[in-house]
Computed example of a mutant assay.
Amino acid sequence: MKKQGEYTLEDYYALPDERRVELIDGVIYDMSAPTTIHQMIGSEIREQLSSFIKSKKGTCIPFAAPVDVQLDCDDRTMVQPDVLVVCDRDKIIKRCIYGAPDFVVEVLSPSTKRKDGIIKLSKYISAGVREYWIVDPDKKQVVVYDFQKEDYPVIYGFGGEIPVGIFDGECRVDFAEIYEYIRFLYEKEEGDL
């Protein structure tokens, strides 16, 4: 039996379809099902990105999880970001995204904080991702890493719009609108405590 750090894509594809995992540098990470807040935030971000790209008749394509990303084009890493944008359509193949997306969003859950904030941050920057957002639903904040600029990270709250660096800030994701849309879930959560 293999040890963590020795797994490859062959092992990844041999797993049952219903088991959600990521493979990072030969290590398999189990992924739990996302919460409703997590799902709604991710889908709303993707929706706003898609609307902007379509309005500009752009060629970039936004995706929402689950979609496999063979980040390093090797057999030791396959990730599934919550939201991503690919502008080089040659990277989109039938099986997966082959290579680094231009833009990646991870919505944190308690079980993914370390992986998303440390391990994936390092992987994304070295693979050539141009911009990485970490959305923390509990803190109601977004940490933005625009790797094309020197002044990162920048931290935003859920109270306004966040400029998308890969589109030179012309596209803005409206977190106030997203929060207004999902606020009922936060209110339910507070009432359930």
Results as ranks from 00 to 15, higher is better:
2 K>Y: 11
2 K>R: 15
2 K>G: 06
2 K>N: 07
3 K>Y: 12
5 G>Y: 03
5 G>F: 09
6 E>V: 11
7 Y>N: 04
8 T>H: 04
10 E>Q: 10
11 D>Q: 02
12 Y>V: 14
12 Y>D: 05
12 Y>N: 00
13 Y>H: 08
15 L>S: 00
17 D>Y: 02
17 D>A: 12
18 E>H: 05
20 R>I: 14
22 E>D: 08
22 E>S: 03
22 E>N: 04
22 E>V: 11
22 E>M: 00
24 I>M: 09
24 I>H: 03
24 I>T: 02
24 I>G: 02
26 G>M: 05
26 G>V: 05
27 V>E: 15
27 V>Q: 13
28 I>T: 10
30 D>I: 06
30 D>L: 15
30 D>F: 07
34 P>N: 01
35 T>L: 05
35 T>I: 04
36 T>W: 15
36 T>G: 13
37 I>M: 03
37 I>C: 00
38 H>S: 05
38 H>V: 08
39 Q>T: 08
41 I>S: 09
42 G>D: 11
42 G>M: 05
42 G>W: 04
43 S>A: 13
44 E>G: 07
45 I>F: 08
46 R>C: 09
46 R>A: 15
47 E>D: 12
47 E>R: 15
49 L>R: 09
49 L>M: 07
50 S>M: 02
53 I>C: 06
53 I>P: 03
54 K>A: 11
55 S>P: 02
57 K>L: 14
58 G>R: 07
58 G>Y: 03
58 G>I: 03
59 T>W: 03
60 C>N: 04
60 C>S: 09
60 C>W: 02
62 P>C: 03
64 A>S: 13
65 A>L: 04
65 A>N: 08
66 P>Q: 00
67 V>W: 13
67 V>D: 10
68 D>A: 13
68 D>T: 12
69 V>K: 03
69 V>L: 04
70 Q>E: 15
72 D>N: 15
73 C>R: 15
73 C>D: 13
74 D>R: 05
74 D>E: 11
75 D>L: 01
76 R>N: 14
76 R>L: 12
76 R>M: 05
76 R>A: 14
77 T>A: 05
77 T>F: 05
77 T>N: 06
79 V>C: 11
79 V>Y: 12
80 Q>A: 09
81 P>I: 01
81 P>G: 00
81 P>L: 06
82 D>R: 04
82 D>E: 06
84 L>R: 00
84 L>E: 13
85 V>I: 08
86 V>T: 00
86 V>W: 01
86 V>K: 10
87 C>P: 10
87 C>N: 06
88 D>Y: 10
89 R>V: 13
91 K>F: 11
94 K>H: 15
95 R>C: 12
